[in-house]
């Protein structure tokens, strides 16, 4: 039986390696410009990786989610969609920023773009393993 320290290291190594790969990939994505083939290919590769994870289904052993207290999330989601639509139909965009137009500001800053990419992948991973 492995020592606890060895076991801990064995548990953490894949996580550290995975984080390193994700950050390196995010830096690569942040270094390419939108509307180019490299941007499309890199985003598609990451998207496909998460979809493959999703195809395996939820992680085994996940507890059944509770039924109570869900309505307020539906109300909040509805409010976000309503506000986005209300803002979207108005112009100029500078005066009525949508979520997309606010995030577009990150486009010119590679570190922000890389952080956004990491956030997108983590969101996808959460959706895939639930």
């Amino acid at each position: 039986m492995p020592e606890p320290a060895t076991r801990r290291a064995r548990d953490w190594l894949p996580r550290i390696a995975g984080t390193g790969v994700l950050v390196a990939f995010a830096v690569l994505v942040a270094s390419v410009r939108s509307f180019t083939w490299p941007a499309l290919v890199l985003t598609a590769v990451a998207g496909m990786a998460v979809l493959v994870m999703a195809a395996r289904g939820p992680e085994p052993g996940r507890a059944a989610p509770p039924r109570r207290g869900l309505a307020h999330w539906g109300v909040l989601a509805g409010a976000v969609v309503a506000w986005e639509l209300l803002v979207f139909v108005q112009s100029p965009r500078d005066e009525h920023p949508t979520i997309s137009s606010m995030l577009d500001g990150a486009d010119a800053h590679p570190p922000l773009r890389a952080a956004l990419f990491v956030g997108w992948i983590l969101l996808g991973r959460e959706l895939a393993r639930r």
Partner: peptide, 23 residues
């Protein structure tokens, strides 16, 4: 008493159609 956003996602993602739409 209240569900976290993770609980809400868990509930939603149990439905195959909702899962496909969210992905």
């Amino acid at each position: 008493r209240f569900a976290t956003v993770g609980d809400a996602l868990d509930r939603l993602l149990r439905n195959g159609v909702a899962r496909a739409i969210l992905l």
